[in-house]
Each structure stands twice: as C-alpha cells, then as structure tokens.
Computed example of a mutant assay.
Amino acid sequence: MIKLMNINQRTREILPGLVVSVVVAAAATFLSEHYGAPVMLFALLLGMGLNFLSADGKCKAGIEFTARSVLRFGIALLGMRITLGQITGLGWKPVVLVMSLVVVTIFISVVAAKLLGFNKFFGMLTGGATAICGASAALALSAALPNHPQKEKATLFTVIGVSALSTVAMITYPMIAKWFDLVPQIAGVFLGATIHDVAQVVGAGYSMSTETGDTATVVKLMRVAMLLPVIVCAAMITRMQGAEDGTGQRPPLLPMFAVGFLVLACINSTGWVPAIVQTGINDLSRWFLVIAISALGMKTQLKELASVGVKPILLMIGESIFLVVLVLTILHFWF
C-alpha cells in the first residue's frame, strides 16, 4: 500500500513537466512537417522559449525525468532500426569504411577539442554526433558521459549544430557527389557515410536515385550500429579515469539503455518482427527523443548558448569537412 502511494505521488510530481514536454514535441513535429526544418531543432528552440518552466515547482521534476529517463528509452528503441543482414549485405568494404571513419573522426575531434581548450568529453560528444548519427548520437553519448556543470549546455549546442549542418549537408552533398561523377552505389556510400541524421540521408539519397537512396540508407544504419561500441568505450574511459555520474558513483560499464539497444537489434535481426511493429517502435523512438530534447531545451537558456563563442562552431564545421574529405579519399583509392 505504501509502495503504491509512493508511485502515485511520484506520478503526480512528474506528470506536469512530462505533459508540457509532450506538447512542445507535438508542436515541433507540426512545424517540422509543414516547414521542412529538422524536428529536433524546432523542439530545442520551442523548449528554450519555455525555459522558465524548469524553475517552476510543478514542472521541474517532470522536465528532469523527461530529459533523463525518456531520453534513455528513446535511445534503446533505436536498436529496432538495425539488422545484421543490413550490415553484411553490402560486403566488407563499407563495414570497414564505417568503422574506420567513426574511430578516426572521434579521435581527431578529441584532439582538436583539447587544442582549442575544451574538455575532451566535448570532443567525444561533437565527434560522435558527426561520425555516427547526428542528434541521436549526441544525446546517447551525453547520457553515457559523466555529469559536469557544462554538460547540458554542450549537449544542446551539439544537437543544434549537428541538426543545422545535417540540413546543409542534405542539400550540398548530392551536388558534391555529382561534381565528382560518382556512380549511384558509390554516391550512396558517400552520402550514407557523411550526412549526420538518418532523415537527411534518406532525403539526399533518394533525391539522386533509388539505388543511391537504398545504399545510403544501409550505410547510414551501419553508422547507427556503431553507437553501441562507442557508448561502451565512452563508459570505459569514464570509469578508468575515475569520473562520477553525478550521484557519487562511477557510471556502469554498459548502461542499461545500451543493453536495450543491443537486445532490440538482435531481435530485429531474426526477421521475425513484423514491419508494422518495426515502424511503430521506430516512430515511438523518434517521439521519445523529440520529447526528451524538448525537455532539455526547457532546462537551458538561449543566452547561455550564445555565450559559447566561435570556437565550438568552428570545431563542428571542421569535423564535418574532415569527414567528407576522409570519405572521398577512401572512396577514391579503395572502392
């Protein structure tokens, strides 16, 4: 009875903030569908416009819960996008390409971040977002990395930056593929290996041809699959350096949301999951992530993001340019 009362009390505490986050996410989705801009960007901007709610007693607990727990659920559900068949279908070269570019891009990003005077975890955050799957990777890595005073600010900046760069890439990268006269399959590998977010990869790929779009989507999903080992590596680095998770405890070697990601990917690889279930879970994952980013937006203020200066912007642009040059070089000499 006491346990039930505690659950009811906790529900009443988180419900106002959760409802506000859902409403903001719905508004962001509506705007995205009608104006074509990334839904994550709209969710962040609308959330930041309501940042005063995070200081309100009625909404604060729910916003905190949404930004933390709903985020982790959304990341775990991303596993339903991946199958082993998709990864092996294109052969070993694209697999090696994706693994190499993720490792090299994150390493270079960490080095560049330290040279610019930033924490190495910021380099991992921006590098992972650039190399893996944009805003989703930024949110997943943020959840795996230790807490620090600037963590949420860095996460929000990374999501905004990678969403904007992904939109630019969707428009400009097909032009680059045509300028280099890439055949459809190679163009698909290029687009899937360089554009940040899945939706933008699909848009850019199918704007060129069906074959390019199919190849780009599979290569992109290979990059999404790299999310799990990168999260594990981030957790290992955090533990080895004795960093804490904000509660006085060392973070787990394999976070539970990463376990969920792996389990769902394995289940999806069996081929037993109906297409309608896959679509439903993918839509649910997207909704969870949009709701969570709305809550993260409400936890920050625009003036804080405006104070980051020009160096982080140059870092993210440099990472994107580096990734394009790296992929084009590998395609030229190896494919």
Rank of each mutant, 00 (worst) to 15 (best):
P252E: 03
L315K: 10
K58Q: 15
Q249A: 15
P229W: 07
A204Q: 10
L45C: 13
A169C: 14
G47W: 06
L125H: 06
V273N: 09
M236T: 10
F257K: 05
V20K: 03
A25L: 07
S136Q: 01
V277R: 07
L18T: 10
T210S: 12
K178L: 14
K153D: 00
V290R: 03
V259M: 14
T167W: 09
A234F: 03
G205A: 10
P149R: 12
I75A: 04
F73V: 11
A37W: 14
V96H: 00
G203Q: 10
V20D: 00
S209W: 11
P184M: 02
T172H: 08
V162H: 10
L165I: 15
T130D: 11
L101W: 09
S166H: 09
I75D: 04
G79A: 04
T238D: 05
V98A: 02
D245W: 07
A26E: 03
Q241L: 12
V159M: 15
I293S: 09
N8S: 13
F288P: 03
L90Q: 02
G260Q: 05
F42S: 10
G91E: 04
L4V: 06
L228C: 09
P146F: 10
A258C: 10
A144P: 06
T300E: 11
I160G: 15
V103M: 14
A26R: 06
L253I: 09
A67T: 00
